[in-house]
């Protein structure tokens, strides 16, 4: 088993940009692309804020192009889910279910995954009317009333997209104003098929007993009033959790589990870098993820330049 100079975990905009830059630096990066390969953009439709595409670009097409571009310069991309990482010894060890790799530097771009409300009734109905992916599951709700839970850009995008199928979309939001950008708010407010439930907290998804969604029980946080909103489907778009479980106890994280970086993309372990949504709960854009992916590649390149010539013999205490 030969040691790699750089391994990148994750294949969204951060991971693939890091792959492009490290490949062009002749570091022969290995990208482990994970179960949700391509990242969150694979679940979107038209991306209108990626600079250079003046008419927009489909999320999956953008990711396919980024992947092809990284491969063109020599990045190696494998499918697989990382099961454990050991950052306490060098080279670092990365274990998959059927393989193990060692690497002198690591770029973590594992991103973030959709968060759920955390209700037992919600979990029971995933795949039976509860979904976190409008572009995956919207087709099942042709002519039916549905709800979207959330108030951010993703919630508005899902709501607008779902009006193509659903008879009506109710946005259920726990505050009295949206967090979404002005342009997304305007689009949602202008859509005749979208209405809003404000200050509304979801208490239960019915009907877990029957194995299908029949209604949402929502409680108004101002009046305390409860009501049942009859819907056939619920799309949950209340944000994301960083995918950092693999690194617990090894890398510094903030209270919400995001990796903490300093002076660029460095983590608390020299040689380990983080890019994209896994270390960013503020901007969370494709372009910022790509930007930090580039930074991580440059940081990793500098780090590797500072190592002794015979990389395989390096012994550094962690």
């Amino acid at each position: 088993m030969s040691d790699r100079r750089v391994i990148i975990i994750g294949s969204g905009p951060a991971g693939l940009t890091a792959a492009l830059y490290t490949a062009r630096a002749n570091l022969k990066p290995l990208v482990i692309e994970g179960l949700e390969a391509g990242g969150q953009l694979m679940l979107t439709t038209m991306v209108e804020n990626w600079p250079g595409h003046q008419d927009g670009v489909m999320g999956p097409d953008l990711m396919a192009a980024m992947r092809a571009q990284a491969i063109r310069f020599g990045a190696e991309i494998i499918q697989g889910n990382v099961e454990t990482v050991d950052l306490s010894a060098r080279p670092f060890s990365i274990k998959l279910s059927d393989a193990e790799y060692r690497t002198h530097s690591l770029i973590i771009a594992t991103g973030a995954s959709a968060r759920l409300l955390g209700l037992p009734s919600e979990r029971a109905l995933i795949g039976h009317g509860v979904s976190t992916c409008a572009t995956c599951d919207g087709f099942f709700f042709r002519g039916k009333p549905i709800a979207v839970v959330g108030g951010g850009d993703s919630a508005m995008e899902e709501a607008i997209f779902l009006t193509k199928f659903a008879s009506h979309v109710t946005v259920v939001h726990r505050r009295d104003t949206l967090r979404a950008s002005k342009i997304m708010q305007d689009k949602a407010f202008a859509n005749p098929k979208i209405s809003f439930e404000w200050n509304a907290e979801v208490e239960e998804v019915r009907d877990a007993g029957k194995g299908e969604v029949s209604a949402l029980v929502i409680r108004n946080s101002q009046s305390g009033e409860r009501k049942s909103l009859p819907v056939d489907g619920v799309f949950v778009a209340i944000g994301h959790n960083p995918n950092t479980k693999l690194f617990q106890g090894q890398l510094d994280m903030d209270a919400n589990g995001y990796l903490v970086t300093h002076t660029g993309t460095r983590t608390n372990i020299p040689g380990v870098f983080a890019a994209g949504d896994v270390q960013d709960h503020v901007y969370r854009q494709a372009i910022t993820a790509a930007g930090t992916g580039c930074m991580a590649a440059i940081d990793a390149e500098k780090y590797l330049e500072g190592l002794p010539q015979h990389l395989g013999e390096v012994q550094v205490s962690a």
Partner: peptide
């Protein structure tokens, strides 16, 4: 009641014994 895909069901003797929703 498949309302989300991919869904994988495993049947044994005509009964559902396992269910996985989403990528696995």
């Amino acid at each position: 009641s498949i309302m989300g895909i991919p869904t994988v069901l495993i049947f044994k003797g005509g009964e559902i014994v396992e269910q996985v929703v989403g990528l696995a």
